[in-house]
Design a protein around this nucleic acid. Structure first.
Lengths: 334, 334
DNA sequence: ATCTTTAACGTAAACGTTTACGTTAAATAG
DNA sequence: CTATTTAACGTAAACGTTTACGTTAAAGAT
């Protein structure tokens, strides 16, 4: 059925070893047999079976990416970056949407191991002891993306969320705002929750502005609907708020919609800065000012890192990526 | 290093054949050796190497998905559907972003073949002769998603874009609109371009409304920016337009933004219906009425179909999926 | 008591490669 | 002209499985 190296060898009147040497250009054959064999290969349309190759080389040229339930735009950017580099290295990626489900995550880890992936990129999820032990035990190279571990020595690439939140809040302060609220999403989230709240509080305290629990409203998630709900609560708790920092662009959009419904003008009456700089940020009315993570570049960096440890088998340093604020029109100066 | 079936066999004092039989539960062993072996497996943390398995079974339990450069939200939904089913079948998916680049597409096809994927889902791209010949030649099961081929007998799942466009236009007409424009994106696009224009024209003609080239403005793509550009041109060509059909939600959002800039109220002064029903449709101001494709379900259907042909090795029927209009607030009745 | 069946294994080939090692003949050295 | 090197191969083992086939001993049939 499928054409194997044997077929090529037979038709070219050489041994399979010679064919192998030629397609891998290792020394050991004459120019004329080379062209002969290459001719046969073209003629038969032969291409090597990477499964068989993988069995002996112990490299599958495949890496696994685990992503939780995130905004599709976020994951897409990250994966695009990863795929860019992966493709450059002649490898491909198996994407696993864990849906933030621990059981599913373990299933996928098991599957990736059985498929003998060369490495794993673990995105935006806390690395539990169970995950770590498994991966460590199997000896699979791994790098964390948009998350990090305090307990385990695993390299990561992420932005400093606390600092980014601080910057965003400071931006509002420097625009003259004094009563600032935050839509924090899920505060228990160890990545997008707590650090951003901490940065927010730190900024306000540093500028001697008042901040208490009324200024921060949280909910289950970071979605559009969470944004409208949280904003309704916020405006009720501190009616004189003039600016808000939303922990995600989707929440920011939710807030803008809610404000619109309530007849509150953005940015005339209330300003808002988002987080993520998704493509929708520029599509909103008004266009949304947002703190941007270099998602695609981060994906690329993470991929570079796994390949670094795969190919050179050496430890690699973590990376803190720079964030920046993309100014659009949702914040006005007082 | 890694634990193989041999290690298990040795430690359990049985042959590798017996271990193999047990993990695949084929008959030929006693209850007691079974528990013994299972014990050893647990103790060593053994799990079978699917590469070795694949070599002999000719199944890799992997399918490849080729997607072009699309709105991230579109691809995400599609892939989510595909992954749902794939995971159910104990398989995984290799996602290949072709960036709508023919050369890259061929590279990926080659790669997928070398990796011996069990099947391929080919999304939203015209199946060229080159692609088809390759896949046909290698004998890889394939199904088309959101596209179809007139020349080649390849099963597909898609919505009927022309009918959907007709429905959308008819919707506007039934709301009382008489001067209707279209933002068509790239008219040469065989999937999202021509059929939607055709449906648009057909609806207008059917209702004896005027339609000529001025009513349709096209551009390179289907993006937000294309939407603003096209709308500016449209309003210039037919200033008395009261409703527009946009070939994508992103274009519709672009149009809304452009209208906002020009001081034209949506839907008070001009109505708009989009296409795709992305998550952003409900986030816009006003929330966007849009024609919805059941993207996730389509992904699932396509996946079911490949597995059907993979496992039962039989021909499978194409599927036309139902679209529907999601009414929100961007269209008003006249 | 002998023959046949069958349960419970083990042996070895096969899957499609890569690669260490062996072999041959020609080329080079002396 | 003989000895040594080397280019150009071929042979066969190995990677980790599955599976067809062979073997053994116990159970059942006669």
């Amino acid at each position: 059925m499928a054409i194997t190296i044997k077929d090529v060898a037979k038709k070219a009147n050489v041994s399979i070893a010679t064919v192998s040497r030629i397609i891998n250009n290792k020394p050991g054959y004459s120019k004329e047999t080379e062209i002969k064999v290459l001719e046969v290969i073209k003629e038969l349309g032969y291409s090597p079976n990477s499964i068989a190759r993988g069995l002996i080389s112990k490299r599958t040229h495949t890496i696994g990416v685990l992503v939780p339930k995130l905004s599709s735009m976020l994951t897409n950017e990250i994966i695009r970056g990863i795929e860019n580099i992966t493709h450059q290295y002649g490898s491909s990626v198996i994407v696993c949407h864990t849906e933030s489900n621990g059981q599913k995550t373990m299933q996928y880890l098991q599957l990736l191991h059985e498929k003998q992936v060369d490495g794993i990129i673990f995105a935006s999820t806390s690395l539990t002891e169970e995950y770590y032990q498994f991966i460590e035990n199997k000896g699979i190279p791994i790098v964390l993306l948009s998350t990090k571990s305090d307990q385990f020595p695993v390299p990561y690439v992420k932005v400093d969320d606390e600092v980014a939140a601080y910057t965003a809040t400071e931006y509002l302060i420097k625009k003259g705002h004094r009563t600032i609220g935050m839509l924090s999403g899920n505060r228990d989230d160890r990545i997008a929750g707590k650090p951003r709240v901490d940065g927010f509080i730190k900024a306000l305290k540093n500028y001697q502005l008042s901040v208490n629990e009324d200024h921060i409203v949280s909910f289950h998630g970071f979605s559009f609907h969470d944004g409208v709900n949280c904003f309704q609560q916020l405006i009720h708790q501190i009616p004189d708020v003039t600016a808000v920092f939303a922990a995600s662009d989707e929440m920011a959009l939710g807030m803008i919609s809610a404000a619109y419904e309530m007849g509150i003008k953005v940015p005339e009456q209330i300003s808002v800065i988002g987080y993520d700089n998704l493509s929708i940020a520029e599509m909103s009315i008004p266009p949304l000012t947002s703190v941007a993570q270099p998602l695609c570049e981060m994906g690329e960096a993470a991929a570079e890192m796994v390949f670094e440890v795969i190919e050179n088998n050496q430890k690699v340093n973590s990376q803190i990526c720079a964030h920046h604020i993309v100014e659009r029109k949702s914040v006005r100066s007082l």
